[in-house]
Amino acid sequence: MSQSTTIRVLIADDVAIVRQGLATIVDRDPEMTAIAQAEDGRQAIALFREYQPDVTLMDLRMPQMSGVEAIVAICAEFKQARIMVLTTYDGDEDIYRGLQAGAQGYLLKDAKPHELLNAIRMIHSGQKYVPPEVGAKLVQRMNNPELSERELDVLRLMAQGMNNLDIAAALNIGESTVKSHVNRILSKLGVNDRTQAVIVAIKRGIVYL
């Protein structure tokens, strides 16, 4: 098969053994080749510029720069970029952020090799690839009330174990303002207390510890 018809794949993941495993799966397919590997978001952008791959496999949580930030940057510069999120995280917020950033697909790392190769082909052909269980979580996310930027700030500090007084000092706002933010956060997440709020937020990928 000539080089021009081969699907050229860029792999971005901060774990070397994962990158090498993905490259092996891709290279075993006679219609594909792994052309480059990035270990963080910044390197992914640089390698995308250099190679302009047909399809990019992008992990979400990487050092230096996250996958979501890298997807946003690549899609802003290259309108035809075809990117698939490949991650261990299935929180509805992670799925939402990845696809909103410009990814055309979302696949979990426990997928079988044939599913990965099929997804790459679909995205290369201009289709989207979202497995049913991922799609269901995305629908759930779309129906959930959106947290404001300030509420997200408060929630992140709650996850660090701060009380209202600490949060007020950290954000330079009044303690009563923090209290009203906390009440809105509990309401939007559908929980009764701060501990539940943090657990739900971590599970959904809204905040990371």
Rank of each mutant, 00 (worst) to 15 (best):
S2H: 08
T5N: 06
T6I: 14
V9I: 09
I11C: 08
D13H: 07
A16D: 15
A16N: 13
A23E: 07
R28C: 14
P30K: 13
M32A: 06
Q37C: 11
E39H: 15
Q43M: 15
L47R: 09
R49I: 07
P53H: 13
D54M: 06
V55S: 00
V55W: 00
L57G: 03
L60W: 09
M62I: 05
Q64D: 08
M65S: 06
V68W: 02
C75W: 05
F78R: 02
M84N: 01
L86K: 01
T88S: 15
D92K: 15
E93M: 15
E93G: 12
Y96H: 13
L99T: 05
Y106R: 03
Y106E: 05
D110V: 04
P113Q: 08
H114D: 05
L116M: 08
L117R: 01
A119R: 00
A119W: 12
I120M: 09
I120H: 03
R121G: 04
S125C: 08
A136G: 01
A136H: 05
V139P: 04
V139C: 10
M142L: 15
S148I: 15
E151Y: 05
V154P: 01
R156I: 09
M158K: 04
M158G: 00
Q160Y: 08
Q160R: 11
N163W: 12
D166I: 00
A169V: 07
K179Y: 06
K179C: 11
K179G: 11
H181I: 05
N183C: 13
S187A: 13
L189M: 14
N192R: 13
V200K: 10
V200T: 05
